[in-house]
Simulated scan of single mutants.
Amino acid sequence: MIDHIEIADMFDEAACSALCAEIREAGGRPAGLLGRTDQKPAWPEVRRTRRAEVSEATEARVNGVLARQRPVLERHFGLALGTWERPQFLHYREGDFFVPHQDGNTPLIHDESRFRKISAVLFLNRQSDDPSPANYAGGSLVLHGPYSGPHLRVAMPALPGTLVAFRSETTHEVTPVTCNERFTIVSWYRDA
């Protein structure tokens, strides 16, 4: 089993479409690791996507969603959660990806990510094997099983407006987008 939760209807279809449009049109930069852009040139081999700079109103709206879901996540995971990190608004184009990794809460990491307890991904558009202009192909969020089941891989359904949350020490990846554009918002809940 992979400990995760899926929560539907964080945003309706119209709101998801508007968010996708804002992210597409917003200025931005390549998304580095741990939100940094000053890393060595090797990081494009690890992660390739663009982090958009959206309006303050949009960021506040997403922070409201994250605040409302904190008690739900605390109950599900049995953790006391503190605040969350500033949301990242991600725009994956064809060929973009993120290799298998963990977001934090592991004994091997000695940076700020060690305080991350729960990772959250909010899907804004639909993944489909037969994508329309609003959907995309490839770009699966795949959660990897724990050490006792290393061959377990579970692709999360990418449904617009759905929040998927999992423990930050869970290995996961985003497979390469093969058609169109993938839009998500990510954040991490930290220790209380």
Rank of each mutant, 00 (worst) to 15 (best):
T175L: 00
T175I: 03
R51Q: 12
V62C: 10
W43A: 00
F98Q: 02
G145D: 03
R75Q: 14
P100M: 07
L79P: 09
R36N: 10
G95C: 04
P71H: 10
N105K: 06
A165L: 04
A80S: 12
R61T: 11
Q88Y: 09
D103C: 11
R93M: 11
A80D: 13
Y147M: 11
L163Q: 04
A60W: 07
H151Y: 10
E181L: 02
L124D: 01
W188H: 08
D191C: 10
V65G: 03
L152S: 07
F183Q: 01
L33M: 14
H4P: 03
R61I: 02
R86S: 14
E173L: 02
E6G: 07
R47T: 09
R116L: 07
L19G: 04
I23M: 15
F183G: 04
W43H: 04
N180T: 08
V177K: 01
T170C: 15
L143S: 02
W43G: 02
A80L: 12
A67G: 05
R153C: 07
T37F: 11
R47D: 08
F123M: 05
R190C: 13
A165F: 04
M156L: 14
R153H: 14
L108F: 12
T58N: 06
G78P: 08
E112F: 01
R86I: 10
A67V: 12
D9C: 10
R36S: 12
V177S: 02
E59T: 15
R182P: 00
Q102E: 09
I7G: 06
E13P: 01
D103Y: 10
P41C: 05
I2F: 08
E6T: 11
G149H: 11
T170A: 08
Q39M: 13
E85T: 14
R114M: 09
V65K: 13
G138S: 03
D111H: 12
P160S: 05
G78S: 11
S148F: 14
F123Q: 06
A155S: 15
V154D: 02
A14M: 06
V154Y: 14
L81K: 09
P146D: 14
A120T: 15
R29W: 15
F166V: 09
L141E: 01
T175M: 00
G149Y: 01
S128C: 12
P44G: 10
S119P: 08
V46D: 05
A165K: 00
S187H: 01
P146K: 04
T178H: 04
V142G: 07
